[in-house]
Design a protein around this nucleic acid. Structure first.
Lengths: 198, 198
DNA sequence: CAAAAATTTTAATGTAGATTAAAATAATTC
DNA sequence: GAATTATTTTAATCTACATTAAAATTTTTG
């Protein structure tokens, strides 16, 4: 029936599990959120989750991988459309934020990578590093093409990623609010505060 | 002996406990970090911590209050010196970051406020809201005096606070690095990316 | 240095919550 | 609609901490 293997009931339910988990983990942290918290959000009882994931650690791991996927997807789409470094940076931010505050949210904040078991930890760390690296590359391209002011790209990247990562902490699903964030956030991050006329 | 009540051995040790706790919580989260983790950092055993705090929840609470104090102190000093809104905003960021990456760090990220017990949660939430409000006021003052471009102050505030909050995630004590962050971060956040000449 | 106070330790207790097993229910298939 | 497969539940287990109590050690003070 399912054309795409990801359209199976199992995969759909698993996605719902991951989203519920992301919501709970974002609120209370990995260990602070219980499997019961997650299950209750879905109208299930905790042991039911084990039908979808091996254990809690894997649940977090999958949330983090999903978060990384979302980031990479936004980045790839932004780069694919070309343009100056600044344009790519702004586009990436818009895409990423669109996803985070949209239907596919909430996305897990990767704030407890050290709590993952070593293999998972290293893998997720690598995904995260690669993403940061890609963003820094965009910044450097922008500096090279003159669209972005010379700056410490590592630090600038950290600053902007911090803003992005923190979004799930204060954004909670308002419909109109989402549009507002999508429209305004990339500007805030790339344009700065200073008035043009001063 | 102690001129200031905060110079007693007890208070000093308690501060060391809070700093160690902040470090552990920032890495693994509130529930993910065990009291043993915290105690070991200080060369102590876990029950020793109960000499300084009532329980683990109070430990997190105190870390959060300390974080709020630091933010408020930076804000007050910045405002006290006057100047345009933009100047105050930049000064506040510099002060706050100086403290975070300096001797008084690490400072706890207030990322699990919902896990606190109701009284503590409400109190910390109020401190956090007040801090955000104060920053938004600075932004509005800057818009009014023409130093800051018109913007959604709520969203802009969230963006910048997210950057600040995330610092402990990637900054880990390099001496030279600290100066670098202090010197560059406020610029990144307030100046934006776009090249002036374009 | 002896007594008192402060600090830390070892040993013991209790509990929440992750995990497993087996049983029950619901959905599919032939 | 009976049999098979998928999904969820109830009931039971196990363990990692948080916490407490009592004892030991260290520090301070007269």
């Amino acid at each position: 029936m399912a054309r795409n293997p990801d359209e199976t009931r199992f995969s759909q339910q698993r996605d719902r599990v991951l989203k519920a988990a992301a919501h709970c983990f974002n609120r209370k942290g990995y260990s602070g959120a219980s499997l019961k918290d997650v299950a209750n959000m879905l109208g299930l009882t905790d042991p039911a989750l084990y039908y979808y994931v091996k254990n809690k650690e894997e649940l977090v791991y999958l949330c983090y991988v999903r978060a990384a996927d979302v980031g990479r997807e936004a980045m790839q789409r932004a780069v694919a459309e070309g343009g100056t470094g600044l344009e790519q940076a702004r586009r990436y931010l818009r895409f990423h934020i669109e996803i985070m505050v949209g239907e596919r949210g909430p996305i897990a904040i990767m704030s407890e990578i050290p709590s993952l078991k070593p293999e998972h930890r290293d893998e997720v760390l690598e995904l995260s590093r690669q993403h940061s690296k890609n963003f820094e590359d965009i910044l450097e391209a922008g500096i090279a093409d003159g669209s972005i002011e010379a700056c410490d790209v590592r630090m600038t990247g950290n600053a902007i990623m911090g803003s992005i990562n923190w979004i799930p902490k204060w954004f909670h699903g308002g419909e109109a609010a989402a549009d507002n964030v999508i429209a305004g956030f990339p500007d805030v991050l790339t344009r700065g505060l200073a008035a043009k006329s001063v």
